[in-house]
Design a binder for these strands. Structure first.
Lengths: 90, 90
DNA sequence: TTTAAATTGGGTAATTCGGGGA
DNA sequence: GTTGTCCGAATTACCCAATTTA
């Protein structure tokens, strides 16, 4: 199936994350995101991986959250998006 | 389909709410507002959600609260109004 | 081939992170 | 219980010129 093997340019990824293209390059250099280099040295990123990072690689199930009750003090302990990757390291 | 899912930085959201960026971070940590993390650990917020919170259209439950002897939950929270948050996206 | 836009690399400010305490 | 401020550390944003891409 098509998991989205399209390649995105640093500018595209930067726009998706609302960061500078330079920052995306830094992620690739740091190994936080996979990258493919063109013969000229430019980087390309897999759309599937980028989308996974955007939504929080976890899964796709957050259709509703405590709707019947206001999250007043029932701390869900989650920031809306399941992102277990960099939740603890820093 | 452009509901405005642009991403805002903590500083942007803080300026909109007239609070400190740290406060916005606390909201995200407490789950009061959804957040997306960059691979570097910084947060980004959906403009649509922020606007909904600003306008109050998201939760129409602010008619009265606090003073009267109100139970913990009395009103139907969101997910019923014009709130195009991430409800079943991809 | 030439042109315009994007990307690369290094270097330096600004922002954000997390924890602690007022 | 919520918010604002302090600190150190990490991440990110903008500056430049040269190369690559389309």
């Amino acid at each position: 199936m098509d998991t989205g093997d399209r390649l995105l340019t640093p500018g595209e990824v930067a726009a998706l994350f609302r960061v500078d293209p330079k920052t995306v390059t830094r992620w690739a250099a740091a190994g936080r995101i996979g990258s493919i280099r063109t013969p000229g040295g430019h980087r390309r990123f897999r759309e599937s991986e980028v989308r996974a990072l955007l939504e929080g690689e976890g899964m796709l199930d957050e259709v509703d959250e405590g709707v019947t009750d206001r999250p007043r003090n029932a701390g869900p302990a989650n920031s809306g998006g399941p992102n277990p990757m960099n939740a603890g390291l820093y």
